[in-house]
Amino acid sequence: MTTDTTAVATTQVYRVWIRATPEKIWAAITDPEFNSKYAYRAPGFFDLKKGGSYHATATAEMKEFAAANGFEVPDTIIDGEVLESEPPRRLVQTWRMLMDPGTAAEPYTTLTWEIEEAKMQAGVCKLTVTHQLTDAPATARMTAGTEDEGAGGGWAWILCDLKTYLETGSAFAG
């Protein structure tokens, strides 16, 4: 008998290079009109000041999927607080996923978005997302996109779709 003891890192770092301006990337992250058009399509709302609120809301499709599979999804699926906001370069926020009882019971985690112009090519920016997941193993598995949690592709999926959307105008599941 074997036991899978694979640990998920308590700090996850993701990088993607995007052919877009820092301002366009910032808007894609922070504007619900924009952030509802890629990845899981859940609009995220930011009050972009220190101490401001953050929350993402469930889509009708999420609620329909949950109902068809015998569970409920709350209206607010992620919440948190803005810790730092330096448009269009840096956003630090707390982050807690509420759509799963296991992740909702864990403490807030810290998510940092950093946007910088790439030195290697004009018109390209590097987006680095660092997620500090101390004492949040269920959230770490979800955001890593591990199959055992049924979470889809996690941050890798979100960032790849963000890049695709900004560069082509179309998201993966369009």
Rank of each mutant, 00 (worst) to 15 (best):
A136R: 03
E33A: 15
A42R: 07
A60V: 12
S53A: 13
T21F: 03
T146H: 07
T5C: 06
K24L: 11
V92F: 00
V129K: 02
Y165V: 05
W157L: 08
Y108R: 14
P137V: 01
G80S: 07
P22I: 04
G154E: 03
A144T: 03
Y165E: 10
V16A: 07
K119W: 02
C160R: 10
A171M: 04
R19N: 14
T168F: 05
T10R: 11
V92R: 08
E114V: 10
G44W: 00
N35S: 09
T11A: 08
V16W: 00
E116I: 09
T30Q: 01
H55M: 06
T168E: 02
P137K: 04
F34K: 10
P137Q: 04
G145N: 09
V16E: 07
T164K: 14
E33L: 05
G51C: 01
T128H: 08
M142T: 12
R89G: 14
Y108F: 11
V124A: 07
R41N: 10
P32C: 01
P87D: 02
A118M: 03
E33P: 05
T3W: 08
V13N: 10
P88Q: 02
Y165T: 13
M97L: 10
A27L: 12
T128C: 06
A156P: 08
T10K: 11
D31C: 11
A156I: 06
